[in-house]
Design a protein around this nucleic acid. Structure first.
Length: 565
RNA sequence: UGUCCUGUGGUGUAAUUGGCAACACGUCUGAUUCUGGAUCAGAAGAGUUCAGGUUCGAAACCUGACAGGACAACCA
C-alpha cells in the first residue's frame, strides 16, 4: 500500500522513472530549494503544439505532480514578429485537453519586461553589459567560429555611465531597428559561442500582443528565460537538448541575479521523434501554409489538435508519453507504439458497432420479404456493464467486399460459394449464387440462412470458421469514411541531406470512401465520439459531419492477425 | 580537425549506482474466441560501438579511438 508522508509525497512512487526524476531526488536529498519542486511549460505562441510538446507537457506537469510540486504555464513571448494570440488560445486548450491544469499560474515572459529592463540596467552599472552599435554582419564576424576565438567589439569598454544613457535612449525609441543591441560582457574567446558577449536586447519597432506599443526593445530568449524561471521560483527548468550549450549562459545570468541559495536548474532531454512523421513547427507550418494538409488539425498531422480530431484520447497520449521514456539519446520512436496506445485505450472503452465500408450486397433468398428482426448485440465485450443494443436484420444486407472470394486461397476462410459463415449476432448463411455485371464483376450474392441459428449458434453444434460483420440495407446509415495512412513514405522524411521532406509525401495518405453503411446506432453520435467498427478498426465522427452527411475518420485499424493473400 | 552531449536486441527504455543484461513495442509460434480483434502461453532476437586498463567481478569506473548529434539567428 502506498504510504503518504507528511509532505504529501507518495513514498511508493518516489522511485525514479528517469534521469530527471533521479536528479530531482538528489536535489531533494541535498535539501535544495527548501524541498520544493516547481516546473514550467514554456511554449512560444508561434504555432500549434505537436505530440513532442505533449511529451514535454506530460513530463513537466507529471514530474511536478509526482513530487507534490507545481507547474506553471508560461508563454515565451519575447519576439512580437512571430507570435500571436491565436496560438495562445490553442495552446491553453491543448494543455487542458491533455488533462493538466496550471490553476492561477499563467504567466508570460512579457510580464517580466520591466524587471528584465531593470536587471539589464544593473548589469550595465556593474560593467557587465554594453550597447554595441556595429552592424549584425560585423558582430557576427567578430564572434568568430566555434573552432576559432572571437575578438572584442570596440564598444566593449564604453563606460557604464555612457551605456546607461544610450540604453535609456534605446528603450525610448531614439534608435532604429538594427542600429544597436545590448550585449552581456562575458568572454569573446570562450569555446562556447553562447558566451561570446551574447545579445540581451534588440530593437523591434513592433507592437506586442500583450504589451502593445510600450516597448521597442525586446529581450532575447537567453536573457529572458532563466530570469523568468528565477522570478517564478522554478526549481527544475526542463528543456530539450538543443539548449544544452546555452546552460552556461543560463547559469551566468542566474549567478548575477540571485540573492539567496535558491537557483533554478536547467535539465535537458531529447526531443521526441516518431517514424514517418516530421516534428518541427517550421515544417508543419509549411505543410499547412502550402496546403499539403487541410490545416493544423488535419487528422494526419502529429499536432495535438490533429491527433484529437483523428480520435486519439488524452489517456492514450499520456500513456504514450509514459512509454517513450525520457533520456538524452537522440532516437526515433516507432509510430507503432503510438498506435498501440490508442488501440489499448479504445479496446477497453469504445462502443462496438457494425459498419461496411466497401459494400457487397447480399440477398437472403429464403428470408421473408418485408420482415425486420431486432437482434441483440453486445456493446463492448471488454466491459459487461456497457450492456446490449438491438441491430436490425432483414432480407437485403451489405457485407464487406473483401469478406467474399470467388476462388478462395487456402488461407482464406470467409465467404465463398458453397461455404457457410456466421453473420455476427444473427444467423449462419450459406452462399449459393454469385451475380455479376457485364464486366464480370461480382455485384451481389444470393445466400440462404438457417433459421435455427438465430443469435449466432447452431443447435446441432456445427461450427463455422468465420464471423462477418454486416448491415441491413434499408436501415443502414449512409456515411463518408476517411481512411488515413502515414503522411510520409519514408521513416525519417526530414533526415535526408540530399532530399526535401516533401519528396516523401505519401500521395495515398487520405482516401475518402463515400459509399459506406453503418448500423443505425451511430445516429446518436456527436462529433469526436469514437466507435469500434467490428473487425475493421476504430473510427470517430469528424466535425465535418452535417445533418445530412455523417463523416467518420479511421483512427487506426485493428491489428491484423493475418497476412493479406 | 574547437567545446559540449550521446552510443545497450529491429525500435524505445531498464539494470536500486561494480554482482547472472530486464521490460515494452514490433516479429514469429500455439491455445482460445460469435471481431483473423482482445485474452492466455511460448519463441527468436543484444553480451551493452571498438581497443586497452582497474577489479575476484565492468553496460556502469579510467584511457584512447570510432560513430552520431548540438553550437557560429538582432529565433525560441
Amino acid at each position: 500500500m502506498a504510504e503518504i508522508d507528511n509532505n504529501g509525497i507518495n513514498q511508493e512512487e518516489i522511485l525514479p522513472k528517469n534521469f530527471i526524476q533521479q536528479q530531482i531526488i538528489d536535489d531533494l536529498a541535498e535539501g535544495k530549494n527548501g524541498g520544493r519542486v516547481h516546473t514550467r511549460f514554456p511554449p512560444e505562441p508561434n504555432g500549434y503544439l505537436h505530440i513532442g510538446h505533449a511529451k514535454s507537457i506530460c513530463l513537466n506537469f507529471g514530474t511536478a505532480r509526482k513530487f507534490g510540486g507545481l507547474t506553471n504555464l508560461r508563454f515565451d513571448d519575447t519576439n512580437p514578429t512571430k507570435e500571436d494570440t491565436e496560438y495562445v488560445d490553442s495552446i491553453m486548450e491543448d494543455v487542458r485537453w491533455l488533462g493538466f491544469d496550471w490553476d492561477d499560474r499563467l504567466y508570460y515572459a512579457s510580464d517580466y519586461f520591466d524587471k528584465l529592463y531593470e536587471f539589464a540596467v544593473s548589469l550595465i552599472k556593474t560593467g557587465k553589459a554594453y550597447v554595441d552599435f556595429q552592424s549584425q554582419e560585423v558582430i557576427s564576424e567578430q564572434k568568430g567560429v566555434p573552432t576559432r576565438p572571437g575578438i572584442d567589439s570596440p564598444y566593449r569598454n564604453t563606460s557604464p555611465e555612457e551605456n546607461l544613457e544610450i540604453f535609456a535612449r534605446m528603450k525610448d525609441g531614439f534608435y532604429n531597428e538594427g542600429e544597436c543591441v545590448l550585449r552581456a560582457k562575458i568572454d569573446m574567446s570562450s569555446p562556447n559561442m553562447h558566451m561570446r558577449d551574447p545579445l540581451m536586447y534588440r530593437i523591434l519597432k513592433q507592437p506586442h500582443h500583450r504589451t502593445g506599443d510600450k516597448w521597442c526593445i525586446y529581450p532575447m530568449y537567453d536573457y529572458a528565460h532563466g530570469q523568468c524561471d528565477y522570478w517564478e521560483g522554478i526549481t527544475h527548468s526542463i528543456c530539450t537538448l538543443e539548449f544544452e550549450v546555452h546552460r552556461p549562459l543560463y547559469d551566468w545570468f542566474i549567478d548575477e541575479l540571485k540573492d539567496s541559495d535558491y537557483r533554478p536548474r536547467q535539465i535537458e532531454f531529447s526531443r521526441l521523434n516518431i517514424t514517418y512523421n516530421v516534428m518541427s513547427k517550421r515544417l508543419l507550418l509549411l505543410m499547412v501554409k502550402e496546403g499539403y494538409v487541410k490545416g493544423w488539425d488535419d487528422p494526419r498531422m502529429p499536432t495535438i489538435c490533429g491527433l484529437r480530431r483523428r480520435g486519439y484520447t488524452p489517456e492514450s497520449m499520456r500513456a504514450f508519453s509514459d512509454r517513450v521514456g525520457v533520456t538524452k539519446v537522440d532516437g526515433v520512436t516507432d509510430v507503432a507504439v503510438l498506435e498501440y496506445c490508442i488501440r489499448e485505450d479504445l479496446n477497453k472503452t469504445a462502443q462496438r458497432v457494425m459498419g461496411v465500408i466497401d459494400p457487397l450486397k447480399v440477398v437472403i433468398t429464403n428470408y421473408p420479404e418485408g420482415l425486420v428482426e431486432e437482434l441483440d448485440a453486445i456493446n463492448n465485450p471488454e466491459d459487461e456493464s456497457k450492456g446490449k443494443r438491438k441491430v436490425p436484420f432483414s432480407r437485403e444486407l451489405y457485407i464487406e467486399r473483401e469478406d467474399f472470394m470467388e476462388n478462395p486461397t487456402n488461407k482464406f476462410y470467409r465467404l465463398s460459394v458453397g461455404r457457410e459463415v456466421r453473420l455476427r449476432y444473427s444467423y449462419f448463411i450459406k452462399c449459393n449464387e454469385v451475380i455479376k455485371n457485364d464486366q464480370g464483376e461480382v455485384i451481389e450474392l444470393h445466400c440462404t440462412y438457417d433459421p435455427e441459428t438465430r443469435g449466432g449458434n447452431a443447435p446441432d453444434g456445427r461450427k463455422v470458421k468465420a464471423t462477418l460483420h454486416w448491415v441491413a440495407v434499408a436501415q443502414a446509415v449512409k456515411a463518408e469514411v476517411r481512411l488515413y495512412d502515414r503522411l510520409f513514405t519514408d521513416a525519417d522524411p526530414s533526415g535526408h541531406k540530399d532530399k526535401d521532406f516533401l519528396d516523401f509525401l505519401n500521395p495515398d495518405s487520405l482516401s475518402v470512401l463515400t459509399d459506406c453503411y453503418i448500423e443505425p446506432f451511430v445516429k446518436n453520435g456527436k462529433p469526436l465520439d469514437s466507435f469500434q467498427f467490428e473487425r475493421l478498426g476504430y473510427f470517430n465522427i469528424d466535425p465535418d459531419t452535417t445533418t445530412d452527411k455523417i463523416v467518420f475518420n479511421r483512427i487506426v485499424s485493428l491489428k491484423d492477425g493475418f497476412k493479406k493473400l
